[in-house]
Each structure stands twice: as structure tokens, then as C-alpha cells.
């Protein structure tokens, strides 16, 4: 058994400057280890490089320096399955809900014989049983994001990357989705790396919270949330944690912007 699902060591990422001259550093020697089976959140302000970090882990963006290792549960370095839930659903609107999930299954070389069973299982898990034949644009934004979650879970990933998956939804829908996500994860338990700008969301959902500062991105605080699940969104202990983190956050941000 591998102990860590993700190991990041000295990661650097630069982007060309918007004015066309030179480059600026988005991520500077960032190191991070995510334990197998844990739910870890990275919290940081918008534009701090959180999404870039997830894209590098997913292998859709190159890195400039450092190591990124994603390991499967059995410790193999290669062939770890990565599920990704993006900010927007990013569904293929011309395919039915069912075929959107099968797209991911085909991409991951998962045997055809298990497709139907997985589609049914994970659609049921996200509360969309019976929507197999529907087209995504006939669904609400929240339902579309549920399809995206089902798609990512259906490949039974070793690690699930989630990039502010509820930030495009209205607060009531988002709140319901968070509670539902907790329930879903009682049945399917991949390692989760969740990125958000909301401290409240992070402390409610996760076991580990990493706080990230801007320009360049670095982790300046790690916190364990030891409150047992299921948690109540209104749990005063969560509020206390959040308050403490907000204070620290602003202390660091002020330093950064000085």
C-alpha cells in the first residue's frame, strides 16, 4: 500500500507575462503530500494558481521544475487513475448523459462489459437515476455538475481532483451538493484534492486544509479538521475553525500585498 496518493516536490510553474515580455512565476517550489484516502482541500484567493496546480497534477499542463507523482492505491507509480471535476461541468452536450460517462470509461480503457453497470451505479449515486438518455442541456446547472461528478467517479479514480466544483451554482444548490457529496463519498472513497476559495466549504468538507498564498503560490498553513462525519454545516466548531483561518489568511495576504 502506498501511503501517499499525491507527492509534489519543489514544483515550479511560470507563465509568459501578459505584456509579452518575460515570464512570471505562478508556483514557486511548492511541496505537498496527500495521504491515501484523505479529503484534502487547498484554499486560496482567486488567481493564486490553484487550478494550474490541479492541471499539472492531471497532466494537462506542463511544469517547469519539480516532481509530481500520482500513485495508485497499490503503490504503482504509473497507471494511477485521475478523475477531474471542473468548475463548469464540461460535458459533451451532443452526447446523452449516459454516453458522457461512457466517454470517460472509454478514454480510461475500462472494459466495455462493465460500462452499463457503472453508468447505473454512479448516476444513482449522484441522484440522477433515470436520466441516462437525457441530453445535458436539458438539465439544470446543478444536475449537469452531478453528471460531471458521476463521470469522474465512474472511472473509480485513485485520486479525484475537484476545482471549485460548486462555485458556479447558486448557494442553495451548492449547499445541497456539498451535503450530498459527503454522502456519496461514504460509498466511493477515492483520495480527494479539492480546490476552493471558500474557507467555510473547505473546513466543512475536508480532513486536511492547506492554505495557499498568491504570487507565487506557496502553502503557508496546514490544518487537520478532526470533527467526525457526518458534519452539520452549522456546527459551531466549524465556524471557530473558519474564523481562526480567516484571521491568519488576512495576516499573510497583507504581507504579500505590502
Amino acid at each position: 500500500m502506498a501511503t501517499h496518493a499525491v507527492v509534489i516536490d519543489g514544483l515550479c510553474k511560470k507563465f509568459p507575462s501578459p505584456n509579452g515580455r518575460g515570464e512570471f512565476t505562478v508556483i514557486d517550489s511548492l511541496s505537498l503530500q496527500i495521504a491515501c484516502g484523505s479529503f484534502a482541500s487547498i484554499v486560496g484567493p482567486s488567481g493564486c494558481g490553484k487550478s494550474t496546480l490541479l492541471n499539472i497534477i492531471a497532466g494537462i499542463e506542463p511544469r517547469d521544475a519539480g516532481e509530481v507523482r500520482v500513485q495508485s492505491q497499490d503503490g504503482a507509480d504509473s497507471g494511477a487513475r485521475i478523475g477531474y471535476v471542473f468548475q463548469s461541468p464540461r460535458l459533451l452536450n451532443w452526447l446523452t448523459v449516459e454516453d458522457n460517462i461512457k466517454f470517460a470509461l472509454e478514454a480510461q480503457n475500462i472494459g466495455r462489459s462493465s460500462w452499463n453497470e457503472r453508468v447505473t451505479k454512479y448516476l444513482h449515486m449522484v441522484g440522477l437515476a433515470g436520466q441516462e438518455r437525457n441530453f445535458p442541456l436539458k438539465l439544470s446547472g446543478g444536475m449537469q455538475q452531478r453528471v460531471a461528478i458521476a463521470r469522474a467517479l465512474a472511472i473509480e479514480p485513485d485520486i479525484l481532483l475537484m476545482d471549485e466544483p460548486f462555485s458556479h451554482l447558486d448557494e442553495i444548490t451548492a449547499r445541497k451538493m456539498r451535503v450530498d457529496l459527503m454522502q456519496i463519498l461514504e460509498h466511493a472513497r477515492p483520495t480527494i484534492l479539492f480546490v476552493t476559495h471558500s474557507l467555510r466549504e473547505a473546513v466543512f468538507l475536508s480532513e486536511e486544509v492547506y492554505m495557499m498564498s498568491v504570487k507565487p503560490a506557496r502553502i503557508f498553513k496546514h490544518l487537520r479538521v478532526d470533527i467526525p462525519r457526518p458534519r452539520e454545516p452549522e456546527d459551531p466548531r466549524l465556524f471557530d475553525l473558519e474564523k481562526g483561518l480567516v484571521k491568519e489568511f488576512f495576516a499573510v495576504l497583507e504581507q504579500d500585498f505590502r
Binding site: N55, Y84, F103, Q108
Partner: peptide, 19 residues
């Protein structure tokens, strides 16, 4: 964004073109 999604799920070229 959709092309990135396909790459994130490791879609091969043929699948990317077709779907």
C-alpha cells in the same frame, strides 16, 4: 476547455476527434 477535459481523462486522439 473540452479538449483539456478529454486529455485529463486520457482520451486518445481517435476518441477526441470522434466525440
Amino acid at each position: 476547455e473540452l479538449i483539456d477535459m478529454a486529455h485529463a481523462f486520457n482520451a486518445r486522439r481517435g476518441l477526441l476527434v470522434r466525440k
